[in-house]
């Protein structure tokens, strides 16, 4: 992640960073929302639908982020990820299990070498209101617990008050904390919490800031704030990662999280990924859904395609 192109302005101080971020083109709100609405009217049928359902399942970060989470609940979620649909062994598995950092080791143990990743939220998720040493300890703890991916939150307070350098340096420091003793590193997803950023311009700025600071993924939301992921915001972030690859040659992933509950929603996002960022992003390496209930609906639709009869909630496991 050190291959940032030479023509990007320096980030030596907050003023320089501010000039760069505020120099990004403004977002046409009406145009963006109209584009997102236009992309959500596509009709996906038969074999394309079957492909999209399987792809969407393979992109899910199956998530449980509740205060009431127990090791048992995490294990049962892992069991669901390992065998999403016992009635059909051809069902793909989701990409990862997303839990709080202290439960990462439970998920790690349950998933073994299945290839399903363990993602852990860190840095005082969901508010991000903690001192830097605490955030870094939180991150190291999760990595030590076996997390393959770290979902960090940015300090929205610092971002909104214009302290971009502070946000930048935090991401850099957390990225450093993702390093394991053996030299490898956990993937870093940077949660922008777009529901608190107020404007699309801010979403674009936060996206570029996070990408420049070394995030491997940019993620819309914690799921704890409404609105969570929306299609226009995700479209905007997909434009950002597309532009970033043109600018620097580095590909960054995108993860909308929260509020995506139905197969129909997931289809809209996949269409948007394909149209905006391109087919390179249509894999679980570069696009993820942060969701819990979505898997159930995708499985129901999958069963409908397989059997020809509408399925019901009695035929998928409850969360």
């Amino acid at each position: 992640m050190t291959t940032v192109a030479h023509d990007l302005p320096p980030v030596s101080d907050n003023a320089a960073l501010t000039r760069w971020l505020h120099g990004l083109p403004g977002v046409d709100q009406v145009g963006l929302e109209a584009r997102a609405a236009g992309l959500s009217t596509r009709s996906i049928k038969t074999t394309s639908k079957a492909w999209a359902i399987d792809t969407a399942i393979s992109m899910i970060d199956l998530t449980t982020l509740e205060g009431a989470d127990t090791p048992g609940k995490v294990r049962s979620l892992c069991a669901k990820a390992l065998v999403p649909d016992p009635s059909d062994p051809t069902t793909p598995r989701p990409a990862a299990i997303c839990v709080y950092g202290d439960l990462a080791h439970v998920a790690r143990e349950a998933l073994g070498d299945s290839g399903i990743h363990v993602a852990a939220v860190a840095t005082a998720f969901p508010s991000g209101r903690a001192s830097m040493p605490v955030k870094l300890a939180d991150t190291r703890d999760a990595v030590a617990g076996g997390a393959d991916e770290i979902d960090m939150v940015i300090d929205r307070g610092a971002f909104l008050s214009g302290r971009y350098l502070q946000v930048f340096e935090e991401i850099v420091a957390v990225k450093e904390a993702c390093r394991r003793p053996d030299g490898t590193s956990a993937h870093l997803k940077v949660i922008l919490e777009t529901g608190e950023l107020a404007t699309y311009d801010n979403v674009r700025r936060a996206s570029f800031l996070a990408m420049r600071a070394g995030g491997d993924f940019i993620k819309t939301s914690t799921g704890k704030v409404a609105p969570a992921a929306t299609l226009p915001v995700t479209l905007l972030m997909l434009e950002a990662v597309r532009d970033w690859r043109e600018l620097t040659g580095v590909q960054i992933g995108v993860k909308p999280a929260g509020g995506i509950r139905t197969t129909k929603d997931a289809m809209k996002y996949l269409v948007t990924v394909s149209e905006i960022a391109g087919p390179d992003w249509l894999t679980s390496d570069w696009f993820r859904f942060g969701a819990s209930g979505l898997l159930g609906d995708l499985l129901l639709q999958r069963q409908k395609l397989a059997t020809g009869a509408y399925s019901g909630s009695d035929y998928v496991s409850i969360d």
Binding site: Y310, S311, D314
Partner: peptide, 9 residues
Amino acid sequence: PWLASHRDV
């Protein structure tokens, strides 16, 4: 036929 085969009915 769709209602007859519907598993949630």
